[in-house]
């Protein structure tokens, strides 16, 4: 199973039109702009990037919530278009803000019943609800079954969101910053829970985060996203040890290091701001901030994907 391709994303573009007034067109937001990758069965990957680089849009396009402008997503070789009902039971969605993701007037039982009813789950629904609550460790189940989201703690809410994503026994989970809204003390528990579920159910997981320090817990490969593109894709250890793209290098350098000697110094961060997705820079999108900028090339031509070492892909002219 391990080597079978479950999901493949081909040259995916998701653009949004900015409107002004009724007919005016103010521009196009290129939130996802040419993304391709393949995920094997049971593989966990992490997508990292700054806020506003298109991570969440990528997640939602893969979930079939947004229609891609160009390119396509294939699940088990079947393209996502038209009626996606077959796909819904195969995929779970774990959101960033667990409180917002849970309808406030439904109790736990009702929240977990919804996906079963919508996807016409055959079999013992009550039993499945109990099973999944036990799996996410909301136990004893009886204490939680008829509670409302606002009666749960943040960590419990996120467990419930995970339970909802898991209840239809999906093959594929998209977790969009699942721990960024939680207390630091709860984060590790939730990540470990996700990891355990991923292993025991042989799940394919896309873990989206802006926090490189949590990636190690989780993923086998890391994709670095910048301004709507995946600029570097590599196995975790390789990327952490030997980052190729100047942006990835800067990102890694910016991870806080809890050494008292660093208390008085500041980390070096790339100058400038994340680029606008409406008018992205020409050529390589990182070139205005890049320390290794090659004039006449980086600002003119968009770099294609190079493979400096096997399995390590990078979109940067330095590796041409």
């Amino acid at each position: 199973m391990q080597d079978q391709i479950l999901v493949s994303v081909k040259d995916l573009h998701t653009h949004f039109e900015l409107r002004r007034g009724v007919f005016g067109r103010a521009g196009i937001v290129r939130a996802v702009d040419g993304v391709s990758f393949e995920l094997r069965h049971g593989e966990a990957i992490a997508v990292v990037g700054e806020s506003g680089c298109g991570k969440s849009t990528l997640a939602r396009t893969i979930l079939g919530l947004y229609r891609p402008t160009k390119g396509q997503v294939l699940f088990e070789g079947r393209p996502l278009d038209g009626d996606l009902r077959w796909y819904r039971a195969q995929i779970g969605y774990v959101q960033q803000d667990p409180y917002g993701a849970l309808p406030p007037f439904m109790d736990v039982h009702r929240i977990l019943t919804e996906p079963l009813v919508i996807n016409n789950f055959q079999g013992d629904r009550e039993r499945r609800i109990r099973e999944v609550l036990e799996e996410v460790k909301l136990t004893p189940v009886e204490d939680f079954l008829y509670k409302f989201p606002h009666q749960l703690s943040g960590g419990q809410q996120q467990r419930l969101v995970i339970a909802r994503a898991m209840i239809l026994r999906p093959k594929f989970i998209v977790a969009d910053e699942p721990v960024s809204m939680l207390d630091a003390s709860v984060r590790v528990e939730i990540l470990e829970l996700l990891r355990a579920l991923q292993r025991s159910h042989d799940l394919t997981v896309i873990y989206i985060t802006h926090d490189l320090s949590t990636v190690r817990y989780f993923a086998e490969r890391i994709f670095v996203m910048y301004a709507g593109k995946l600029i570097e894709k590599a196995p975790v250890q390789q990327l952490l040890k030997d980052p190729k793209h100047p942006y990835t290098q800067a990102l890694l350098a910016a991870i806080p290091d809890p050494d008292p000697a660093n208390a008085k110094t500041f980390k070096k961060v790339p100058p400038g701001e994340p680029p606008s997705l409406v008018n992205p820079p020409s050529g390589c999108r990182f070139h205005p901030r890049c320390p290794a900028f090659i004039a006449g090339l980086c600002d003119k031509e968009t770099p294609p994907e190079f493979e400096p070492s096997p399995g390590h892909f990078v979109e940067c002219w330095l590796y041409r």
């Binding site: 039971a89 969605y93 993701a101 849970l102 309808p103 919508i118 969101v161």
Partner: peptide
Amino acid sequence: QEFALAAKAMGAS
């Protein structure tokens, strides 16, 4: 709201 999106993602009409 996120929960509307969640409902959509689980395939609700």
